[in-house]
Amino acid sequence: MLKINDLTWSAPDGGRVLRGVDLEIPDNKLVVITGPNGGGKTTLAKLISGLETPDSGSIELDGTDITKLDITERAKLGISYAFQQPVRFKGITVSDLLELAAGEKLSVGEARSYLMRVGLCAREYINREVNDTLSGGEIKRIEIATVLARHSRLSIFDEPEAGIDLWSFNNLIDVFTDMRKNLNGSLIIISHQERILSIADEIVVIADGKITMQGEADKVLKCLLSDDPSCMECPKKEVHYHGGEVNE
């Protein structure tokens, strides 16, 4: 289990971004984090994967405090993060990146299967450089494929739907549905997409640097889709669902 305790983070310009986040991510569940843009979702993902260091609070994975571990150490513990904005590299090919992610040489068949899962024709992409000749949607799918290749203890996908066409999006839903069924660890997806929210086990809503709602997916989703403004706009009226129990 991933346990986040009272985490705070301020941007370099001093603005408070996360204002005390407490969160438990259970194993073998698909947890979708949603909420308005600028709410702090990506920041939370960066703190979990070690890209940023919190001002205060702690992060535990399976009972071990990982707050002080660096990015590489956390990656080696099995934390993976598919960036919201993937990085481009001159001279590094898709297959290089997949092999770095897998931590071993991949057969052509294995490399292909990761690309096919994200809806990319393997033959066309496997030797392409991960550079700026790739479109936003293409690089996004390659980013997702690299995280799939890691078979991680904890995978975080940050807005995987962004820039992706409908056909590939259907593919992605299949990928995540499939991952959810065969989960051997934790899966976090940050998303605004109703179809991704609808395959979640749990949904967490983050707004203005705080968790404003958390609970079983169908309950949170119902609340999110209702017109009741108290759900989204008033963080004071927090509704926490834990294992079906309501703690107001």
Binding site: L51, A75, Y81, K90, G91, I92, L97
Partner: peptide
């Protein structure tokens, strides 16, 4: 960010730098 990305795949900073230079 290139070094950061490769570190999230498990490479150390030095390994990431070497990969990036070799690819380049």
């Amino acid at each position: 960010e290139q070094i950061t990305k490769l570190r999230t795949l498990g490479l150390t900073e030095a390994e990431a730098e070497a990969k990036i230079v070799a690819g380049f």
